[in-house]
Design a binder for these strands. Sequence first.
DNA 1: CCCCGATTCTTTACACCGTAAAGACTGAAG
DNA 2: CTTCAGTCTTTACGGTGTAAAGAATCGGGG
Lengths: 195, 195
Amino acid sequence: MTMKPAPSPKSPYHHGGLPAALLQSARHLLEKRGIGALGLRAITRHAGVSATAAAPHFGNLTGLLSTLAATGYDELADAMEAARTHGPRTVGLAYVHFALANPGLFTLMFRSDAIDRDHGQLARASARAFSCLAALADGGRAGPPGASSRAAVMAGLWGKVHGLAVLATDGLLSPLVGTKDGPATLDALVAAALR
Amino acid sequence: MTMKPAPSPKSPYHHGGLPAALLQSARHLLEKRGIGALGLRAITRHAGVSATAAAPHFGNLTGLLSTLAATGYDELADAMEAARTHGPRTVGLAYVHFALANPGLFTLMFRSDAIDRDHGQLARASARAFSCLAALADGGRAGPPGASSRAAVMAGLWGKVHGLAVLATDGLLSPLVGTKDGPATLDALVAAALR
DNA sequence: CCCCGATTCTTTACACCGTAAAGACTGAAG
DNA sequence: CTTCAGTCTTTACGGTGTAAAGAATCGGGG
């Protein structure tokens, strides 16, 4: 086996880590200039390669963005699993915190017209993230008095958490912070709403 | 005052109701072919005018889409106000029902990178729709034992309703219907989750 | 060692997009 | 009748995603 030769930045051919570099450039543009700046030409330009250099690795723009969204779902699942050790109530907070920490990526992960939900890597990663929520819903289900179906409590929990995340990242919750007798920060508002 | 001459479809100039016709074409394309098909050229082509005919009325594509989104917020506010007479609990259902009945329009209404939230007509209409939810949150607030702040119950209610609407229109809730002992239809799932 | 196929990356080209600019046409007011 | 403001068309420009063909490089089998 040959040691990886620490990609020399001078050679124009065989970049060495182009896929990772493109994903990094895409994520950088996504968070710095918004989702509207996520063009194939902008990404490749930022990575210093020609406009069609992504095709051998990702096929087309949708493939690249789907792979990027997959890494987002992986990170989200990791965050939720880590939060589960701090008690089940904190995993909803972890969901919203991930969205607020990576607003562009979170938005991309739910842009069904920009990504391909059948993309292998993306399908696997999103299934893992969603199963975290399902496990949480099962755990939080009380005895038989409520008698809500598994699907209903899952939808209710996911809906509330996801809605708060979407509204918060879109800035639509900001008018509610700082109001009289209300929470002073977005985090506090979300935490209070999740009770 | 002169009677409006019932726009003759033969004269190429002075269409008569171009703004309304363009909005109708846009909405048609939006629901039939998805939000990705909402291009200025596609809309004007469908309306039978040249590609730049929308500029005098809407300025640019963002202006047209913002106006379309404004009509969506108006319809949503109407639906919620109508539902309020059937008891406060049904207005959340009205929110989700509107999203499911007009998935493309609902998606557009929250695409902050495709519309201009400062657009006059849009800002007015969305403020009206959001104030309906605020009123609902105020009405549903129980006595002092809960002691949740106004902002917190507003965020919780809006978040849950909006999250269910978004997940449902994106098809992410469909895998939950028809499961063992679960609701058989999307509507039933949403209604159960909103309890 | 050499060569050859597979892979990576570049250049070129094409169709499409949003929209700025300038011209043709129309309705109405003076 | 004249004029003017508003409407719609044509043309043109820079931008996009990506298909196609060529140059450069790597890896493995003679």
